[in-house]
């Protein structure tokens, strides 16, 4: 799951400056559940662009814009509408926009910003977050993640910034280390506060090399078959 949100309309209009016509592409996957590029938002965008004097040559919402094969098959019946447009406005996450730009030989404008998941794995209701640090510390912290619950991701305990149990960042955010303290106390584990934790290994926080986009990335290979 990827979270995205629509860019301000002014910014989108700026991208379309000097262009007369546009084709709008939405996504029925994550952008639909993010409320940034599903069928509803595509229709709203069409109306707003027309009010702003742009000609919308057509719209289409495809199941997963991140899948290049689906982009191509989804646009098969719309070739004329796409060809008639100066550009395509893509209303989805950064991967979807890149997949469309790679699949269609047209200028593609992003209509959305892809935002940080904050370790939430998308539209998750619980308060638990994981930043995939590759060195899980939950044994020392009563099962509350210090990387995501503490704004500074401190491993050695609280900074001095908390007021009334809230983080120095904002009164809306609990101090993660105070949550950890209360949890440790309730589990009879306060001695864990004496443990020294090593500074994080930031290599482990980065994507593993085999996960990075390279010419050898397996999914890219399979994609070659549909490329024309």
């Amino acid at each position: 799951m990827i979270l995205s949100e629509q860019k301000p309309f002014e910014e989108i209009l700026g991208y379309l400056d000097g262009e007369k016509s546009v084709f709008i592409l939405g996504c029925d996957g994550c952008a639909q559940s993010s409320g940034s590029g599903g069928p509803v938002q595509v229709e709203e965008m069409k109306t707003k662009l027309e009010e702003a004097g742009k000609k919308v040559t057509g719209t289409k919402v495809i199941d997963f814009l991140c899948e290049k094969a689906l982009v191509k098959s989804g646009l098969r019946g719309r070739v004329d509408q796409v060809a008639a447009a100066d550009s395509i406005l893509v209303m989805t996450c950064g991967i979807g926009i890149q997949a469309v730009a790679a699949s269609v030989n047209k200028v593609c404008h992003p209509a959305c910003n892809t935002v940080n998941l904050g370790g939430s794995r998308g539209e998750w209701r619980g308060s638990e977050r994981c930043q995939e640090c590759g060195q899980c510390l939950l044994d020392y912290t009563g099962g509350i993640c210090p990387i995501t619950a503490c704004t500074k991701s401190l491993v050695s305990g609280a900074c001095g910034g908390a007021s009334n149990g809230k983080c120095e960042l904002s009164p809306e955010r609990d101090c993660g280390w105070e949550l950890i303290y209360n949890r440790l106390k309730s589990k009879g584990q306060l001695d864990k506060l004496k443990v020294f934790i090593d500074p994080l290994d930031h290599n482990k926080l980065m994507a593993r090399p085999e996960m990075l986009a390279t010419s050898r990335y397996a999914l890219e290979q399979s994609d070659k078959e549909v490329k024309t």
């Binding site: 149990g165 280390w177 105070e178 303290y181 506060l193 020294f196």
Partner: peptide, 26 residues
């Protein structure tokens, strides 16, 4: 190192003392 003397919650107080102990050990 530094420490906060006044804390408005028990957790904050205890965390300050525990961290002070670690700062000294460090």
């Amino acid at each position: 190192a530094v420490v906060k003397v006044e804390s408005d919650t028990e957790a904050s107080m205890e965390l300050q003392i525990a961290k002070l102990e670690r700062k000294i050990a460090a």
